[in-house]
Design a protein around this nucleic acid. Structure first.
Length: 858
DNA sequence: CCGTTGGAGTTTTTT
DNA sequence: ACTCCAACGG
């Protein structure tokens, strides 16, 4: 590998901030230091500063480096100041990464880039400065999904709509979808608006928006949608931003949805030199429709509404700003969430005169891996087409391993990981990427058994936990007294004797007087409408909030938060709580208060919390990473395990059913993403039997396996133990020939399965579903079939261990109250015993059920 | 006010 | 099969 290949982590040399002017004119071969080490295409992408540029950056081609270097270049060329560059990413993580790298490149000469951030944080920032134009105050609250759903539920109730039949969640999804497509309530196609609750969908959307204004709140979609509306209705404001942003950079362009696209599109127009020229007002939009170029050609029907906002005059390259979008159509995996691959496919069309630069040199993976990934993705139609290539050696072939069932798959992968570990591989360089999160459990079980350190990436986020949301609700009520949702959340938490009846009363009063709940409470307390007990309690609460608000002026926001939590009784509530996770929750609350220090004040904290608070940064210990394919995007590892390549799971049946061919292609892209995460080893697995939602199904290997190029793939035996494996032919359907499985095997595991298959299906299973229907018994009552494998002795898997133990009446060697230690969960005390199954209250991890063989006396 | 029970839903996930 | 939530009963 040549030096430029080390793009990924430490490829960025230390740079002094380029002395201004020195590099005024970068010549072809000589140039500023930061340009050295870029390949010609990368360099082109960095140096093409004028006009629209689309960088098609395949996996591992140095995309982030191009973006950050481009910014550095713009700055050092004196083309713009930091505040004049708009640089948007999709996730906070990506934004942080870019800031970090920019910092490395530019030293401290440049203060942070004020407009580098996610679509939503930048949209939120713009919205706060013009909040009044959206009938909001600048301290508006950003609602998360949970708040949205609760609000919608109230609206459904008010409309007397059965929320069983028409769940609030579904409506939230619809509204979100509309917002993703840039549609206001009035713009929703009537057909779609009518789909929900017998035609009330549109009306509900409208009243939801009204309620948001009253609550001084916006949801995620509004952060962009309201921007768009303001830009359209106030050309002067739009112009102001257009003038400010001399350069626009967009990361992960393939993931943008229509709203994001429209937002970019508005900002990317050069400010009209003549103020009397129409901005993007409604009128100009409508009247320009006829003259609008054939943009609609590739639009799907039903999206027409959006096309009317694309009045970008053709042949007006001069009016389109310097926008640079970086993306990879082959890595678009968020279509189900509103991302429009179309956006990237149409770029040249939408931004006439755009320069398209392809980055196809991959600096990450070995030849075999890259070839496998490329062949797989080549089965997709509707791509812009890139061919990744590498100068790296071929390396090891991609392996495909069959396992009998998901348990064996987990066992096999566990053993391979241990083997890699013995070979000196760092666990940090090993990842398991699954399609669906329920696949993770099996691996966790296995790793706990093996004592293999692992970390789960993704999963529930910090601020989604109940205790965090409760604490935030208190702070929200302090900050924004009109935040009824927050008030409702905590009015009776901890219990204050203010139940449904009281809340209902407050609601009635609030609605009649058109005041927030909190003010209603203040008023009602002065009346005799409530029973003395509730009245007193409510009065105390109001008084407390008044006091806290007063204290806000004289105390730091962190102290205030601590005071609120203590005085409200919220901390005490958890201290008194006997349940196992109470300790963890208190810990989270402390963490929350700690994290507030990073912000200037309460307002700043609340503004950001819902946008940028992500999961706890993991400790830096050496551990295997376990995550979904989706959360793996943007990451890379030396060794990547890809289990579960089976029809129905991957590609996901549901995606296929709902999205058809487009869905299949997105799944394939997901596979491509998975493979291209690997630097040196990619190991694919499929299991013949998998339990989904409790029922065993026989599965057939994923069609994606058949789409891999034979020359780069090696079929291996499962190292999982039970001894059957996908040996056999290597032809058109190399994997789905069930006869190939185990015909020469006679292990108990195979026999068990064979018996089952016959029972469930009355014979050979032709490859469809079925078999194993609700018949776990043979598994559990099987004699110890793992005897010959020492690894299996060590930790019986739960289902076997559990059931065998029960049937044989084994009793545990532990007794209640024993102090024990567990590999993963640490120290704890035995709370309950059920055969060999222990319920243990762990000091840190809370209450967990574990099998006794996993713990030892402390 | 709390605990039990019944029912429904279970891909992916950011902001 | 399992989990999470809502409604109901003590």
């Amino acid at each position: 590998m040549t030096e430029p290949s080390k793009i990924t982590s430490h490829g960025v040399p230390d740079h002094q901030p380029a002395a201004g002017g020195i590099a005024a004119r970068a010549r072809a071969s000589v140039g500023p230091k930061y340009l050295t080490g870029l390949n010609p295409e990368q360099r082109d992408a960095v140096e093409t500063l004028d006009g629209p540029v689309l960088v098609l950056a395949g996996a591992g081609t140095g995309k982030t480096r191009v973006l950050t270097t481009r910014i550095a270049h713009i700055l050092s060329q004196g083309r713009a100041r930091p505040g004049e560059i708009l640089s948007v990413t999709f996730t906070n993580k990506a934004a942080r990464e870019m800031k970090h790298r920019l910092g490395q490149m530019l030293g401290q000469a440049v203060e942070g880039m004020p407009w580098l951030g996610t679509f939503h944080s930048i949209g939120g920032r713009i919205l706060r400065t013009h909040a009044e134009l959206a009938q909001l105050k600048s301290n508006f609250t950003v609602l998360d999904v949970d708040d949205q759903v609760r609000l919608l539920k109230q609206l459904l109730q008010a409309e007397n709509i059965d929320d069983k039949r028409w769940p609030a969640r579904m409506l939230a999804g619809l509204i979100d979808g509309w917002k993703n497509r840039g549609l206001n309530p009035t713009q929703v196609p009537s057909g779609e608006a009518a789909m929900f609750a017998n035609g009330k969908g549109g009306k509900l959307y409208a009243s939801y928006q009204e309620r948001l204004k009253i609550l001084n709140a916006a949801d995620f979609g509004d952060l962009l949608l309201e921007n768009i509306r303001i830009f359209r209705e106030h050309p002067d404001i739009l112009r102001q931003y257009q003038q400010r942003f001399k350069y626009i950079l967009v990361d992960e362009y393939q993931d943008t949805n229509v709203a994001q696209y429209l937002w970019l599109r508005l900002l990317a127009q050069a400010p009209s030199p003549n103020p009397s020229l129409p901005g993007l007002t409604r009128q100009s939009i409508d009247s320009s429709r006829d003259g609008s170029p054939g943009l609609d050609a590739s639009r799907r029907p039903g999206d027409d509404e959006n096309d009317d906002v694309l009045p970008i005059p053709v042949n007006e390259k001069a009016h389109v700003k310097n926008i640079c979008c970086v993306g990879d159509d082959d890595q678009s995996i968020y279509g189900w969430r509103g991302a429009e691959v179309d956006n990237i496919l149409r770029f040249e069309h939408d931004f006439p005169g755009a320069k398209v630069i392809r980055l196809e040199r991959n600096y990450r993976s070995t030849g075999h891996i890259l070839a496998a990934a490329s062949h797989l993705i080549a089965h997709n139609e509707g791509r812009l087409g890139k061919t990744l290539r590498t100068e790296d050696e071929d390396g090891e072939k991609v392996t495909v391993t069959g396992a009998w069932d998901s348990e064996e798959e987990a066992r096999g992968i566990g053993e391979e990981i241990e083997q890699l570990q013995r070979q000196g591989e760092k666990l940090n360089e090993i990842a398991i990427l699954v399609r669906a999160s329920y696949q993770m459990r099996e691996f966790e079980d296995r790793f706990v058994t093996l004592g293999l350190p692992y970390r789960v990436i993704g999963g529930p986020r910090f601020y989604e936990r109940a205790e965090i949301r409760d604490a935030l609700a208190y702070l929200r009520v302090i900050n924004s007294p009109a935040d009824d949702l927050a008030f409702e959340r905590i009015v009776n938490t901890p219990k204050r004797g203010l139940g449904d009846a009281t809340v209902q009363m407050l609601h009635d009063h609030a609605r009649k007087r058109r005041i927030p709940l909190f003010e209603a409470a203040r008023a009602v307390v002065e009346t005799d409408e409530l029973k003395p007990k509730a009245r007193g309690s409510l009065r105390d609460l109001v008084t407390q909030f008044d006091r806290w608000r007063a204290q806000r002026e004289v105390t730091t926001h962190t102290d205030l938060a601590q005071i609120v939590l203590d005085e409200s009784g919220y901390t005490e509530m958890w201290q008194k709580d006997r349940s196992a996770d109470a300790a963890g929750r208190l810990e989270n609350l402390k963490e929350l208060v700690r994290s507030m220090e990073e912000f200037e004040n309460l307002q700043g904290f609340l503004e950001h919390i819902s946008l940028v608070m992500d999961r706890d940064g993991g400790a830096e210990e050496d551990a295997v990473s376990l995550m979904t394919l989706h959360s793996a995007k943007g990451l890379e590892f030396d060794n990547v395990f890809l289990p579960g390549w089976e029809e129905g799971l991957f590609p996901s049946q549901r995606t296929l059913d709902e999205q058809g061919r487009a869905g299949l292609e997105e799944e394939r892209r997901l596979g491509h993403v998975g493979l291209t995460r690997a630097r040196r080893r990619a190991k694919l697995y499929f299991a013949t039997n998998r339990r989904i939602h409790g029922t065993w199904s026989t599965t057939i290997p994923s069609r994606f396996l058949d789409e891999l190029p034979a020359a780069n793939v090696e079929i291996t035996e499962s190292k999982g133990g039970s001894g059957w494996g996908g040996s056999g032919g290597y032809g058109a359907s190399r994997f789905d020939d069930m006869e190939a499985f185990g015909s020469s095997y006679s292990t108990p595991g195979w026999q068990r399965a064979q018996a089952n298959r016959n029972r469930g299906q009355g014979g050979r299973n032709g490859g469809g579903r079925g078999g194993f229907e609700e018949e776990p018994a043979p598994f559990s009552s099987a004699p110890d079939f793992g005897g010959s494998f020492s690894s299996r002795r060590r930790g019986p898997m739960t289902i076997e261990g559990e059931l065998v133990a029960k049937s044989t009446g084994t009793t545990s060697e532990f007794s209640i109250g024993d102090r024990v230690f567990h590999q993963k969960f640490g120290y704890g005390r035995v709370a309950k015993i059920d055969g060999n199954k222990l319920t243990i209250a762990f000091d840190k991890a809370g209450e967990k059920k574990v099998v006794d063989s996993f713990v030892q006396r402390a």
